[in-house]
């Protein structure tokens, strides 16, 4: 017969933390030892008392927190515009539930673009962006061209999917089956986070990989850090933009461009 188990052993027994053999031993002992049985009852009562007591503190969790995550990330992306370039590049989804709040989504995008423009006047990034965009569009002041992107093979209104797959320093942004109304904006940042922000859709994440599914009509914003050594943007299997080192090239006419970003329509 074993000696009296320690109090922590009895608690671990109560919490089902003991190995099977030790659990059996404690159970047999408690059945024949009034002192240990009493201590086990006390621990059980204390556990119930604690649970009951602290549940009095509980209040409903704020319901809007999930949506606030998106705005928080956007704000951080803006802050990164003026932040030092970090050593490592990560991939981050900027997610939102805009399907239920389309007006708010548009407003956030506008604020984001305006904020980004205001954040970088005169910076080396601005010059770099202007030069890069000029290379492929004929200049930032060029009039918007007609439909820019390869047409969708899936027809109008089909859901779009966006995925970002970092691989050996390469950021590959793939947009498949976009709705013709989808406007894709590629912004080049001086930060260390490559991000995709889709007005609609849901994200599937895995280590080093983000996939956005069922992105419908609206805007897909790609934030591409200058520190990414190599990046490609594909639209329905067509390469539409590349970045190698500091050289960013848009391989199709842009629908619009500015010092801070280029954009093109998904189909049309």
């Amino acid at each position: 017969m074993m000696g009296h188990p320690a109090e922590q052993t009895l608690l671990a027994y109560l919490d089902r933390e003991l190995p099977v053999d030790e659990r059996s031993t404690v159970r047999e002992h408690v059945q024949v030892c009034a002192a240990c049985s009493g201590m086990l009852d006390e621990l059980a009562a204390a556990t119930r008392s604690l649970a009951d007591a602290i549940s009095a503190l509980d209040v409903p969790a704020p319901a809007l927190l999930a949506s606030e995550l998106e705005g928080d990330l956007v704000a951080r992306a803006l802050q990164e515009l003026d932040a030092p370039v970090p050593a490592a590049t990560t991939i981050t989804p900027l997610r939102r539930r805009a399907s239920r709040r389309p007006l708010l989504a548009a407003a956030l995008i506008i604020i984001f673009v305006a904020g980004a423009g205001a954040a970088i006047p005169g910076s080396p990034l601005r010059e770099w962006l202007a030069r890069s965009v000029e290379l492929v569009t004929g200049g930032p002041s060029e009039e918007p061209t007609d439909t820019a992107a390869p047409s969708s093979g899936q027809g109008s209104g089909s859901p779009a999917a966006v995925s970002v797959q970092p691989r050996d320093g390469l950021v590959r942004i793939i947009i498949t089956q976009p709705a013709p109304e989808t406007m894709i904006r590629v912004r080049l940042l001086d930060g260390g986070t490559a991000s995709v922000w889709s007005v609609e859709g849901r994200y599937r994440t895995a280590p080093g990989e983000i996939e956005v599914l069922e992105a419908g009509p609206g805007e897909v914003v790609v934030l591409l850090p200058r520190t990414v050594p190599s990046a490609e943007v594909e639209l329905d299997g067509h390469l539409v933009a590349t970045k190698e080192g500091s050289d960013f090239r848009l391989l199709i006419p842009a629908a619009d461009s500015s010092d801070a970003e280029v954009s093109f329509q998904a189909g049309g």
């Binding site: 927190l65 606030e68 995550l69 951080r76 990560t90 981050t92 989804p93 895995a206």
Partner: peptide, 13 residues
């Protein structure tokens, strides 16, 4: 909570 989830968003697990 928000801060922790934002950080998780940046580090899918």
């Amino acid at each position: 909570s928000q801060e922790a989830f934002v950080r998780l968003l940046q580090r899918p697990l």
